[in-house]
């Protein structure tokens, strides 16, 4: 078994009760979303290096080429910038490309077309064209992914006007946000997390949409608000169970969309708890943590009982080695420690 498969298989999540609804894994729900989108709209095409290979983007594109043909689901050259431009041009002419990457690190090769073209075309031409493009990648972590295969680059992109950025944390949202992103007329990036791919959850059959820009409260609590997205929500949830045992009751806000951000949901929660911790899979500097933290100070300062804190990556590139990794990535226990410290003050 490939190393990353065995790592992801070893992760333990709360299991949903199948009696209460249909259970799918995260990757199965993505596969279903893409199938529905391809069935639903002839303009949808799915492309990316390896979408038709046996690994099929962690399984998310499995079987799609057989079902929809090579003109709609196809492998691409390793030309990330060129293909991002091809997707942009095709989207401007009425197609709805879903351009998939194994890792966000490869999107860095395409920044010129993504940031300087796709994100701005609609604005620059006064609305004459639209770029209904979905860019998808799964953040890697662990077992040697290292500095060049684990980058969570959402923070770099939050400051680019014109992009929407989605970071689902459940199979339900993975499907609903993918379908919404494909239907959206603006360029939309979906950052998945490798460690969520085998997480199970309730996923309704058929088409449903999760609106972009709306977060959701995952756990109600009175003492402190934790805001984040994607795998950071899983860590926060694990931390909340440990904290509950110690009598600390946290509220967890899953942003789902980090651009645009659901300000109202955060505000309502801070108004209640008076304390804010922001968690993210990316670097704490300049990204989700920094932006939400600043908004809190700027807009909701009067509700705060103490300083806003953050748990993200340190200002260091990802180390490849196992021992160093253990000191690099935040854990549920890190979140517990910070929360306890905040509540003590």
């Amino acid at each position: 078994m490939p190393w990353d498969e065995s790592l992801v298989n070893s992760l333990v999540y709360d299991e949903p009760d199948p009696k209460q609804g249909r259970v799918l894994s995260y990757v199965q729900s993505l596969n279903e979303a893409l199938r529905i989108a391809l069935e639903d709209n002839e303009s949808v095409i799915v492309m990316g290096q390896g979408v038709d290979d046996p690994s099929a983007m962690f399984g998310s594109t499995k079987g799609l080429q057989d079902r929809f043909g090579e003109s709609r689901v196809f492998d691409t050259p390793l030309s990330e910038e060129g293909m991002m431009g091809v997707c942009t041009g095709a989207a401007m002419r009425g197609l709805r490309p879903v351009y998939m990457h194994n890792r966000p690190d490869f999107i860095l090769l395409a920044f010129n077309q993504l940031i300087t073209h796709a994100a701005k075309c609609h604005f620059m031409d006064n609305g004459l064209t639209q770029v209904p493009l979905v860019v998808w990648a799964a953040i890697g972590r662990g077992w040697g992914s290292g500095a060049q295969h684990s980058q969570a680059i959402q923070g770099l992109l939050m400051g680019v006007p014109g992009l929407k950025i989605l970071m689902p944390s459940t199979p339900y949202d993975a499907k609903g946000l993918m379908l919404q992103a494909i239907q959206d007329n603006s360029p939309t990036i979906i950052f998945e997390h490798r460690w969520l791919m085998k997480k199970n959850g309730f996923v309704p059959e058929g088409k449903y949409l999760v609106p972009i820009g709306q977060g959701v409260c995952r756990r109600e609590g009175e003492d402190l608000t934790i805001v984040g997205a994607s795998h950071a929500i899983e860590l926060a949830y694990q931390a909340s169970k440990l904290l509950a045992a110690d009598g600390v009751d946290v509220e967890i806000i899953d942003l789902r969309s980090i651009q645009p951000i659901d300000d109202q949901l955060i505000e309502d929660s801070i108004r209640k708890t008076g304390r804010l911790l922001v968690v993210d899979t990316g670097w704490a500097i300049g990204g989700v943590c920094a932006e939400i933290g600043f908004r809190a100070v700027e807009k909701w300062f009067s509700y705060l009982k103490g300083a806003v804190r953050r748990v993200g990556l340190p200002d260091v590139p990802t180390p490849a080695g196992y021992a160093l990794e253990q000191h690099y990535y935040p854990t549920a226990q890190n979140i517990v420690d910070v929360v306890k410290d905040m509540c003590r003050k």
Binding site: S71, V86, G89, A90, A91, R93, N112, Q113, H117
Partner: peptide, 18 residues
């Protein structure tokens, strides 16, 4: 951006072919 329109045009041609 020098060269920037080249892949975009290529994508338009892909859409025409499609």
């Amino acid at each position: 951006i020098v060269g920037g329109a080249i892949p975009i045009a290529t994508g338009a041609a892909l859409a025409s072919q499609y």
